[in-house]
Nucleic acid binder design. Sequence first.
DNA 1: AGTTTCTTGCAAATAACTCGCGTTTTTATT
DNA 2: AATAAAAACGCGAGTTATTTGCAAGAAACT
Lengths: 142, 142
Amino acid sequence: MAIYSKEDIITLLQEAGLRVTHHRTSVLSFLVKQRAPVTVYEMIDSLRKKEGIDQATVYRNLTSLQEAGLIKRSDFNHGHAHYEFETGRPSHQLVCNNCETIEKIDGISIDDTVKKMLKKSKKFKRTTTHSMEIYGLCKSCA
Amino acid sequence: MAIYSKEDIITLLQEAGLRVTHHRTSVLSFLVKQRAPVTVYEMIDSLRKKEGIDQATVYRNLTSLQEAGLIKRSDFNHGHAHYEFETGRPSHQLVCNNCETIEKIDGISIDDTVKKMLKKSKKFKRTTTHSMEIYGLCKSCA
DNA sequence: AGTTTCTTGCAAATAACTCGCGTTTTTATT
DNA sequence: AATAAAAACGCGAGTTATTTGCAAGAAACT
């Protein structure tokens, strides 16, 4: 989890071909600081309070940032989207079926498994990145 | 993919402690016949046309069937739920980031990976079943 | 600075899903 | 088979999550 300065954020946006607006920078900065995927609600709540950003703006920036490959969306079967900064590395997480606990697990590779799956696939030739979610009950809910 | 008769469906419902209503039987039968997860929209559309089932009823039955462990929900980051029959076996799928193509891949085991993840986890002791989604672009979208 | 193009705020619209309630169906019991 | 309690249903209205139209404002190019 590298540390990104404001200049780094701006560089990321420029390299992605996106305009560097104040709000877009804020949205991406916010996500860079998190250790786990956050809900859109949390982002809107925080950014609205802190800088008065409108929810439509948050949604629009999440879309543009995702299309640029800078952030990643996951739903975790909870009925609303979560976003996180796109590190480029595959992400693996344990998800609670009851509460919304999500725990990211580092140091795991499933590249071999992905290769095996692609070999068996008829509709996919290759995958960009991948993510794996394992669902169960966390200690508190079990 | 075993073949389930109407009697089998009824037995499944009874063993799960659910009432055997006409509509509930239809919803579960519908899902048993699919080879891949289907959207709620597809289910409502088909069941409304065929038997006049109301959408609220479809939703309520999906909830009760899921709570009983007979079906499984997945969102695939598309913003709406998909459901499939719960086979008890882990499921692994390739998901297109662009269109909504979902391809299930059989014959893969990631039990060792899951074990490794649980060993590293702080918040989870064990998982019931699991599912893995690998995201990329399908051949048509690539 | 001027202009083109993208972004924003606001309010209204849409999509996905849920709820209240009176009526009907299922299931347990006679 | 009749019957009563519990659960399920349809229908319309309500929520929640997300999107859109449009006029005004900010970035980026010249």
